[in-house]
């Protein structure tokens, strides 16, 4: 049953991911990305990380993707001419894009990671919350600082060009 679910999710994920990369219109890419995210959230769920799955939906889908859509809407006229997809562009991308993960997978299959017995217990929000506020307090604070900086930076970057209308 779980295998079936996982299979469906994988198909969903990769279909979405492929759309996200291959399709020529950015908006379609985004939709593919969204699809892939749903699949990914499902995979996380299968892995027992409910909270992470929800966060993937909430932040990636509800936040990042929407922001990207916003950016696309603001910046890409629908009739904008698409980039040419010539062999000299595809080939190197394919080479690196396939080569590097090939190396990784080869290494992966060559060795094995130490595994501990699978914990079936679901780790809930409470545990994660506790961990965030005890063991990982410092990185947590750092992340919040990072986000603050990112917000301010984003605002600053987006605003600066506004002051230069002829730029």
């Amino acid at each position: 049953m779980l295998d079936l679910a996982l299979g469906i999710l994988i198909v969903l994920t990769f279909a979405g991911a492929t759309m996200a990369v291959v399709l020529k219109k950015v908006f379609h890419n985004l939709l593919g990305f969204g699809l892939s995210l749903v699949g990914l959230a499902g995979i996380s769920l299968v892995l027992g990380s409910e909270f992470v799955a929800l966060m993937q939906l909430l932040i990636f889908l509800g936040g990042i993707t929407v922001a990207m859509v916003f950016a696309v809407m603001m910046s890409t006229p629908r009739e904008q001419s698409e980039e040419p997809r010539t062999a000299d562009r595809v080939a190197p991308a394919l080479l690196v894009g396939a080569g590097f993960p090939a190396v990784m997978i080869a290494l992966l299959l060559g060795g094995s990671f130490p595994t501990s017995p699978v914990t079936e217990e679901l780790f809930g929000v409470r545990e994660i919350g506790l961990a965030l506020l005890t063991t990982f307090e410092l990185p947590f604070e750092a992340i919040s600082l990072l986000l603050l900086a990112a917000i301010i930076g984003a605002v600053a970057v987006a605003r600066r060009t506004r002051e230069r209308p002829d730029g």
């Binding site: 190197p92 991308a93 690196v96 590097f100 190396v103 990784m104 290494l107 060559g110």
Partner: peptide, 19 residues
Amino acid sequence: QLYLSIALGLLATGLLALG
């Protein structure tokens, strides 16, 4: 893209060497 390719190429080489 080129930078990324170079970086990853180096990383892969390093990983292979480590492997």
